[in-house]
């Protein structure tokens, strides 16, 4: 970041969040962080980031409000249907050869992606042998994901995506309406472990067959992207799969040689033999 007063204040604010609450945003991609923090400052009605920092240090309730701005992620079920079609048609046949499976949805946000996988795995008959790990740094996001309720106006888009992703059933089989939204069947979450985990500061916690981390790395700078990709490499079984967002790439990473292209346009990679 440059040396304008605002940038200095912003850096100090991120440092304060780290020292006081151990959330580390210091290596997030700066242009997005700057946008999000300015939005937070405006909506929480602070004149300066220094004022925001003081409130944050002395008032714990301020943390979750600011985290809300820093971690907001907007996803949808079966986002980029061609990705999920490739998982279904190309990755699933490999997964079938394992007697038990571990799948990690890293940065699960509000759970749209997790529910997409749970439905796809049920349709493909893999659900019973699978444990899903859904992780995020935001407690609010994890709570939303574990609730599995999405507003009704999003369902038409989800349904269209599910169909385009090769869905073998009707999406409406998996939810009922209530609580002002579509409530997804709790049996979809029976094999899910929700957990607070940071790609920035935490370590490997299990050996995975598939890791899905889409549109999370775009918020990281290259240093942090390298850390996360190293973590994914160390978490995957030999020939395990890594799915990234459509416009994310491992091309610029130190770990590029640890993975090979499996489905190039869909950004599905495979862990190379070590």
């Amino acid at each position: 970041m440059s040396d304008s007063i605002e940038d200095i204040e912003m850096r100090l604010l991120l440092e304060a969040i780290h020292l006081r609450y151990h959330y580390d945003f210091r290596h997030y991609a700066q242009a997005s962080v700057r946008r999000r923090l300015r939005q937070a400052k405006k909506q929480l009605q602070f004149d300066t980031f220094s004022a925001m920092q003081e409130a944050l240090l002395h008032d714990e309730t301020m943390l979750s409000r600011i985290l809300g701005y820093l971690t907001v992620q907007v996803s949808e079920m079966f986002r980029d249907p061609s990705f999920f079609l490739a998982i279904r048609e190309k990755v699933v046949p490999h997964l079938r050869t394992y007697p038990s499976l571990k799948v990690w949805i890293a940065g699960c946000s509000g759970g749209e992606e997790l529910h997409s996988y749970a439905i796809l795995f049920r349709e493909e008959g893999l659900e019973d042998r699978t444990i899903f790990y859904a992780t995020d740094i935001s407690p609010d996001a994890l709570e939303t994901a574990a609730r599995g309720i999405y507003s009704l106006d999003r369902i038409a888009g989800f349904t269209e995506n599910h169909r385009a992703a090769g869905g073998k059933t009707s999406l409406s089989d998996y939810y009922s309406t209530g609580y002002g939204g579509a409530v997804f069947d709790k049996t979809l979450r029976e094999r899910v472990v929700f957990s607070d985990h940071s790609l920035v500061t935490d370590a490997v916690f299990a050996e995975m067959h598939l890791i899905s981390c889409r549109n999370v790395l775009i918020y990281f700078d290259r240093t942090l992207q390298d850390r996360a990709l190293g973590l994914f490499r160390d978490s995957l079984v030999r020939n395990g799969f890594l799915g990234l967002g459509a416009k994310e790439s491992i091309r610029f990473s130190d770990h590029a040689s640890s993975f090979s292209d499996f489905a190039r346009t869909e950004k599905i990679y495979q862990r190379r033999e070590p």
Binding site: A31, S32, R35, R36, I218
Partner: peptide, 8 residues
């Protein structure tokens, strides 16, 4: 450097 975001 070019960066993308999926913010609202």
């Amino acid at each position: 450097t070019l960066a993308l975001s999926a913010d609202e």
